[in-house]
């Protein structure tokens, strides 16, 4: 079996299993916090924490029994890598790989950011935190996390189908416009 066929089959199988169980259990990762804040209901929040704890335990187990996992305890990499600015070009971190960088840099390196005493909070980390805040806000306004929207689109909800249309258009707009604006911001 070639690797192309293996990746396609694995992702298709994962998708069908997640879609089936997601529809049967109406699980939503954002809805857990929303229900907890509104009516103190913890049915969905238990799924949130079950996901977190299960994946933490399994990652630790597979690392301890000898499977190779690159950069496993990731905070070790985060304290070891320094900021490197090559010439004048400093790109926004690529959106595919895991990025490890210092969240805080020293004030004598030429990284643009907010200066507090002797350290500099770079604009990259501030933009990422702002984007995480906006992700939570926009997801509650549309009544679901991305997984829940995919499941609702499969159950016949036409709003969720338009949401998926917006997803695919957003990829194009990010690659054509937003990535360059972010590069302009941090240079």
């Amino acid at each position: 079996m070639t690797i192309a066929l293996k990746i396609a089959l694995v992702t298709a199988a994962i998708g069908i299993v997640l879609g089936f169980f997601g529809q049967r259990s109406r699980m939503c990762f954002i809805g857990g916090w929303r229900d907890f804040f509104l009516i103190r209901d913890t049915y969905l929040l238990k799924g949130f924490f079950a996901f977190l704890i299960t994946s933490a335990i399994l990652f630790f187990y597979f690392d301890a029994t000898g499977h190779y996992m690159k950069n496993y305890p990731w905070f070790e990499q985060q304290s070891a890598v320094q900021y490197e600015v090559e010439g004048d070009i400093h790109n926004f971190p690529d959106q595919c790989d895991l990025v490890y960088y210092n969240a805080v840099a020293s004030a004598d390196s030429n990284i643009k950011g907010i200066v507090i005493g002797e350290t500099v909070l770079p604009f990259e980390t501030l933009v990422m935190y702002l984007a995480a805040f906006l992700l939570g806000l926009l997801s509650t306004l549309s009544n679901g996390c991305p997984l829940r929207q995919h499941v609702m689109a499969g159950s016949g909800n036409a709003s969720a189908m338009l949401y998926l249309g917006g997803f695919y258009v957003g990829v194009v707009i990010y690659n054509l416009y937003v990535h360059e604006w972010l590069n302009l911001l941090i240079n």
Partner: peptide, 9 residues
């Protein structure tokens, strides 16, 4: 395939 699995269910 996630919407497809949800459709089947």
């Amino acid at each position: 395939t996630v919407p497809l699995g949800a459709f089947i269910a």
